[in-house]
Structures are given as C-alpha cells and as structure tokens.
C-alpha cells in the first residue's frame, strides 16, 4: 500500500507544483494520475521514490515513512519507467535489464536467467536482442526494454511516467495491449502517469484527475464519467465521453435497463463484456447475453436506451 498524505511541493519562484495531495493505492491496484501537462503528475511520482523531497506532508509505503529509509534502498525496490526510457546508451539490452539485480547483488546466473526470461515475455528474443545497444532498437522495443529493466528485480511497486507517451499511436496501442496482458504485472501496485484519457481509462483500476497540483476527483471510471465532481472533470472527459462511457459500462452494469425479449438467438456474450465491444459485435451479428440465469436479446437500440436510462438514474441517485 502506498499512502500519500497532505503532500505539497514547490520549486523556486513558483506556486506549488503539488498542493496538499492525499491518496492511497491498495496493493495490486493500478492508480492512474491523469491531467494536462504541468499539473504536477511527474512531481508527485518523483516524490514517491524520493527523487524529490516534499516540502510538506508524508509518504508511506506499507506503514513505513519513506523518509526513514535510505533513498538507494527505497528505489531499488520500486520499479521506475520513464517516458524517454533513460536506457544506458553504453549498456547492451541484457546489461540494461540487469542493472537493478546487480545493485542488489544477486548472483550472476540468477541475474542472467531473470533478464532472459523477461526478454522472452516482452517479445524481445534474446538471441537477436541480448547484445544489442539501445540506439539500435525501435521506440517500441526501447520502451519494452525500459519496462523489463523496471521489472527485473520483481519490485512490488511500479512507478510509470507516461511510459507510452513517446510512441506513435499505433505502436502505443500495441505496446499497451501487451502491457495489459503481462502476467508480471498482476500482483503489482502501480502508479501510472498519463495525459491520455483513453489510456487512463483502459489501464487504471482507479483514476485520479489532477489540475494545477490538486486532485480534482479520484475514483473508478464510471464515477468520473457519470458523477463528475466538478466542471473541470466534466469538461476534461467531454471529448471522448461517448467512447469512454461505452467502454467503461459492462452489460451487467446496465442489466436492469436492458429491455430485450428472451428469445435467444445468435451468440451469447458474457455479462462482463463492455458496451463498446458489444456494439461492435452487433454490427456483424445478432447477440444475446445471460446474467443471473436471465437471458436477454440485444440490439443497438436496446443497448443505447439502457445506457441512457442508467445514466439518468445514476446522476439522480448517485453511484450504486
């Protein structure tokens, strides 16, 4: 668990870059810090691994105040992924991945096995890439090496600062998809920084929207969408609202409002399928779904009506 408590930070001749910030991240959770550039996301992240010291407030990992630990020890147990990778240009891929285990003085064969395993998992065949220097890799490959390097010592916590930010849109999506599927990440507590709304909704268990060093709202995707705390949050999400709503609502969420007969024909979709995917499916084929032993027939109209009904209820009565 990471706990950030009333943390503020300002730089010389400036207003606070981060202002009275508090949040908690549960073990295994992925918290996304989302906001326009300059709102203090990186500053927040860098305080957690003590690259910056807060002016006020405290940060705890578990129950331990990070001030009490040596910065080197703290950092060796936190994976850190940067937008511009920061790979060592004079180290090969294998050497780059081995840096932290070496600092932790693992024995040689263990380091090597671990690095090779990670390369396999991140689709960087060691035979081709182990002894190659970072400059010889594509942007996407470099970012995967950066991720492997952060994961090498299997740290319980991962801090990621716009990890896909430097990639072109197509590569970004494919690297992100690999990222989601990576078993290494299952049990990790992750704080991921991005200014990309879509990315935030796709990767975050919870999302923390920041502006001018303050938290505007923190919560699950549906809370931000359907119960925005203020105008800033509302406007921030407006551009992609439809797509975000469709993607964050699952069939089970709107089940009571689905007004379909139960004459099931076509494919049966899981109730965990989100509305966006369901719509895509319906374009090609007929489909239905079952939830709590109830079967419903789906089509575009039924789906959209249900979503509107859901939104109306939620905005009147709050989130359930």
């Amino acid at each position: 668990m990471i706990k950030v408590s009333h943390v503020s930070k300002s730089f010389r001749h400036g207003k606070n870059a981060v202002n009275d910030l508090s949040f908690e991240v549960q073990p295994g959770e992925t918290l996304v810090l989302l906001g326009t550039s300059g709102c203090g996301k990186t500053t927040t992240l860098r305080m957690i691994n003590r690259l910056l010291i807060p002016d006020q407030g405290d940060i705890f990992i578990g129950t331990k105040n990070i001030r009490t630990e040596s910065p080197e020890n703290l950092r060796r147990n936190i994976g850190y992924v940067l937008q511009n990778t920061g790979l060592f240009p004079h180290y090969t891929v294998l050497e780059n991945i081995s840096i932290v285990p070496q600092l932790l003085q693992w024995d040689k064969s263990r380091i090597r096995n671990r690095a090779l395993t990670l390369m396999e998992k991140l689709r960087l065949p060691p035979a081709t890439y182990a002894h190659v220097y970072p400059q010889q890799l594509s942007g996407g490959q470099q970012q995967r090496v950066g991720l492997a390097r952060a994961l090498a010592a299997d740290p319980p916590i991962l801090l990621m600062d716009e990890p896909f930010g430097a990639l072109d849109p197509l590569t970004r999506i494919s690297v992100r998809n690999e990222f989601k599927l990576l078993d290494e990440l299952n049990s990790k507590t992750i704080i991921l920084v991005t200014h990309d709304v879509e990315e935030a909704f796709e990767l975050g268990s919870r999302i923390c929207i920041m502006n001018e060093g303050r938290i505007q709202q923190m919560g699950a995707a549906t809370e931000l969408l359907f119960n925005p705390a203020n105008d800033f949050v509302r406007h921030f999400l407006d551009k992609q609202r439809l797509e975000l709503e469709l993607k964050s609502l699952r069939l089970r969420d709107i089940w009571p409002y689905l007004d379909g007969s139960n004459s099931g024909n076509g494919t049966l979709l899981s109730a965990d399928t989100n509305c966006w995917d369901t719509l895509e499916y319906l374009i090609q084929d007929k489909a239905g779904s079952t939830f709590r032993n109830e079967e419903k027939q789906l089509d575009g109209n039924i789906l959209m009506n249900a979503i509107n009904a859901y939104k109306k209820t939620v905005s009147q009565h709050g989130h359930t």
């Binding site: 691994n49 690259l51 910065p71 080197e72 020890n73 703290l74 950092r75 060796r76 850190y80 940067l82 511009n84 990778t85 920061g86 790979l87 060592f88 240009p89 840096i99 932290v100 600092l103 950066g146 390097r149």
Partner: peptide, 22 residues
C-alpha cells in the same frame, strides 16, 4: 543525458555508482 541520469538515480545507483557506471 538528464533522462539517463534520472533513470540511474531512480533505479537506486549511489552517487559513486552513478559517477563510475554512468
């Protein structure tokens, strides 16, 4: 490159290791 320095520090290299290795 400041990015390399940031990454190296963030991974937990001591100032001495930073000097000698980076």
């Amino acid at each position: 490159d400041p990015n390399v320095m940031e990454a190296a520090t963030g991974m937990g290299l001591s100032p001495r290791q930073l000097l000698l290795k980076v």
